[in-house]
């Protein structure tokens, strides 16, 4: 039904050591299903872009590494023969060509007759809602327009996988939100195998069927966005995605005790020296409600729909608490806190 014929991608013990000896990527095994959107997420230098470039054919894995497209070894195939679409952070649009020529370039390379190129370019322009820009030069486009052209150009050749390297990083926040939605719609409708590299967790959460969180050239966790958020496998993942609160203490007689007070503790696990939880799993208790945790407000930021509180509880870092209560909070105020036991993590 679709013209796109999505393929599965597999990496087998792909490692990358650069000429200067830097180890960019530890041996990595990864399978990406046909039609799936996988997001590589991590701080800069974590190896996510290197992995993408290995899949693209722009980098070669160290000896022993293998890249498989639909089960076929393409490790030695240069990028120009891999039939993957690629979108670059800096767009990489050709300044010597118009918008239409950019989009049609891959088709020209494939020796498609020019009448068909025109039709296909027209479709692409329509799909990205940039029909009016067809004859513009690249330096006459805004950042958002450039990104749309880059996407159209990558998709025009009907690649078997779409590789996106931080495509929204160079844009401002508002435009990022708009384009994120557009890319999501696009990937869903194309059913294309897509690999998306970003350091922005919101982008990763919104777009990924699965997220691969990377750190220091290693995979820290692979999972669906919800799993990554709710069940982070490591402290790094817990801290990198969303905000995480932590309390140090000890379990004694079925109670977890810390400087701020205590909370009831289930039978298992028997012990914990540190508990972690998200801001949405802790709340400010109502006046009159009995609370076993106490803290002092260090700062309060009114955000409109809620108030973000930083609460001093005798730990290294204050707790981040979000309250939707219709009341003022003032610095130095003593408040009671309650933690939802379902949100507690022990790593």
């Amino acid at each position: 039904m679709s013209d796109i014929n999505p393929m599965s991608i597999a990496l087998k013990t792909c490692a990358k050591t650069f000429a200067d000896g830097t180890k960019a990527l530890e041996p990595l095994d990864l399978s990406i299903n046909a039609g799936e959107t996988v997001v590589f997420l991590g701080p800069s230098g974590c190896g996510k872009t290197t992995t993408l470039r290995i899949i693209a054919g722009l980098e070669e894995p160290d000896a022993g590494g293998q890249v498989l497209f639909d089960g076929q070894d393409v490790t030695q195939t240069p990028i120009e023969q891999r039939n993957v679409g690629m979108v670059f952070q800096s767009y990489a649009l050709f300044p010597n060509m118009s918008v239409a020529e950019n989009i049609g370039y891959g088709l020209k390379i494939r020796k498609m007759p020019s009448s068909q190129i025109r039709t296909r370019v027209g479709e692409m322009l329509g799909m990205m809602q940039i029909e009016k820009l067809a004859n513009r030069r690249i330096d006459q486009l805004s950042g958002g327009q450039r990104q749309r052209v880059a996407l159209a150009r990558a998709i025009a050749v009907r690649p078997r996988a779409l590789l996106l390297d931080e495509p929204l990083t160079a844009l401002d926040a508002k435009l990022r939100d708009t384009l994120r939605l557009e890319i999501d719609t696009l990937l869903r409708s194309l059913q294309i195998t897509a690999i998306y590299v970003t350091h922005d967790q919101a982008e990763a959460m919104a777009l990924g069927d699965r997220i691969v969180v990377m750190e220091h050239g290693r995979v820290a966790q692979i999972g669906a966005p919800r799993d990554i958020y709710q069940k982070p496998a490591t402290r790094f993942v817990a801290d990198f995605i969303g905000t995480m609160n932590r309390l140090n203490g000890a379990v004694r007689n079925g109670v977890f005790t810390c400087r701020a007070g205590d909370l009831p503790w289930p039978e298992a696990p028997a012990d914990a020296s540190e508990i972690l939880f998200r801001p949405e799993d802790i709340r400010v208790t109502e006046s009159g409600e009995a609370s076993r945790l106490q803290g002092t407000i260090a700062s309060a930021f009114f955000l409109g729909d809620r108030t973000r509180l930083f609460v001093e509880v005798g730990e290294k870092l204050p707790l981040v608490v979000e309250s939707t209560a219709r009341r003022d909070f003032s610095r130095g105020e003593q408040i009671g806190l309650a933690i939802d036991p379902r949100g507690i993590l022990i790593l």
Binding site: G35, R120, E123, L190, R210
Partner: peptide, 23 residues
């Protein structure tokens, strides 16, 4: 979570039949 498949939308985005034999 598996791949998301919504064939209906795709048909609109690539309205032309398989266009060329050149790919």
């Amino acid at each position: 979570m598996g791949p998301r498949v919504k064939p209906g939308v795709t048909a609109q985005i690539f309205p032309s039949p398989r266009a060329s034999s050149c790919e």
